[in-house]
Amino acid sequence: MLSLERVTKVYRLGAFGLQKLIAVRDVSFEIGEREIVSLIGESGSGKSTIGKLILRLTPITSGTIRFEGTDVSTLNGLSLKEYYRRVQGVFQDPFASFNPIFKADRVFRMVRDEFYPQVGMREWNEKVEGALRAVGLNPPDVLNKFPHQLSGGQLQRFLVARALLLDIRLLIADEIISMLDASTRVDVLNLLADLKARGLSILFITHDLSLGYYISERAIILYRGRIAEMGPTDKIYNRPLHPYTEMLMESVPRLDRKWEEEGRIERKAALTGSVPGGCVYADRCPKAMDICTREEPELKEAETGHFVACWAR
């Protein structure tokens, strides 16, 4: 349904954009029908950038993003609006997602203004209430309130409800539960699972590995703007191939087993400047060989559907 082909994003910084920051480089992956794909990586690895590229919130530097065969960068005006009818996003900070000076249900009104001006007010209100119920909210409790009168979990569900008002096929969920408390987190996660059952595909962006496992069938591990490993979630979690993924899996605080005494966790953990020609993980990798600092490993299929970019594999 959605495919990324060698997508690269370079941000220009400083006066006149003389400095370059490569946030995402040569990233290719696909999201199929009714699929939840986790995009996992530490902060700064380029996750949000990928989300923004898909949502056309920032221009792409090179590569192509296709949605149902159409190159997304060619869309404009009406066709872009049609795209947004089918592809929507929900972002990390529920409080920042609402204009603090307006009532929260204004986001629904905006959808009506832009997409359904012909729908009558009564019919529309019913539709909104239906969407709110679908995300587990009781309309009278949450309508006609200011954002600061609602909890983070309620606001986040509001935004999902907003997306449901459109005929969406794909939802980009960028760290949508990282700001929520444990007690409301699961509800939003379960909501995503329900949406999938209704036929939606979801790109679930997260830095929390246990959440990724709970919700997705496929996972993509991103490191410094490059895909390190990609494949079925259980394979990635139980038999990681990339040394970076291995390290991640050993450091996840699990509830079913304690950390091993003095694992081989590097305490240095300081990112050092830009990446020269080799593997982006070479400077931290315990398995690094000569070639790792000279040549960049390509993403290759190690077993069916399970890809890894590492010379040691």
Partner: peptide
């Protein structure tokens, strides 16, 4: 983020 949200509302 609310500006991004308005943008993806077209």
């Amino acid at each position: 983020e609310f500006v991004d949200l308005a943008r993806i509302t077209g």
